[in-house]
Amino acid sequence: MDFRWDLVWESMPLLLEGAWLTVKLTAIAVFFGIIIGTIMGMLRITRTPFRYLAAVYIDFTRGTPLLVQIFIIFYGIPAIINTSLPAYLSAVIALSFNSGAYVAEIVRAGIQSIDKGQVEAAQSLGMTYTQTMKYIILPQTFRRIVPPLGNEFIALLKDSSLVSAIALEELVRKGNIIMTRTFRPFEVWFAVALIYLIMTFTISRLVALAEKNLRVGDSA
């Protein structure tokens, strides 16, 4: 049986359409994931009762499968409050919520890796907790956590394929559709894998570039 490159080629327009949705979902989830993760990561190490809230969120999210989280948000919650959530919105919520927990752990570890002397120097200048975080700790943390954040976003991009389970036509779902039309699993999944590879490779190059550029330059 020969490999039909023409089929790979013909699948591309539809697959790229799916890939575009994959990229959109991932980008939105990364955006909210960083916001949620930064807040939760910081709360996790404050001495307020909020740290328990953050711990529950992080442990729950990391301790349950993303697919189950997607089902809870798409089927579970609407069933209880008697409404329905569009698949797209459910996917965005589930992926952001999931990514936030992993980012929170990265942020927490990043903050804790900053030398204690930095906080003391900031405090000795009379800076408040918020000022210390904003000008001293978080900027150094973000520089330091670029590589693990990059890994997390690559993982998220791949995991976003799970939203195909709620009928969102992202890359994997499109692959499935073409598959049922052509019955050529090898070519189709090869093409899908190739597109994922190009996307993940691009992210890791961008991350490496960001890492290099963050070494220098900063304005107060």
Partner: peptide
């Protein structure tokens, strides 16, 4: 305390400069 600390400068054994700032 933040006001108090503004009036007491402190210099540390290990400098503790902010490495991300000029």
């Amino acid at each position: 305390l933040n006001k108090l600390r503004q009036d007491m400068g402190m210099v540390f054994q290990r400098f503790n400069l902010f490495p991300h700032k000029k």
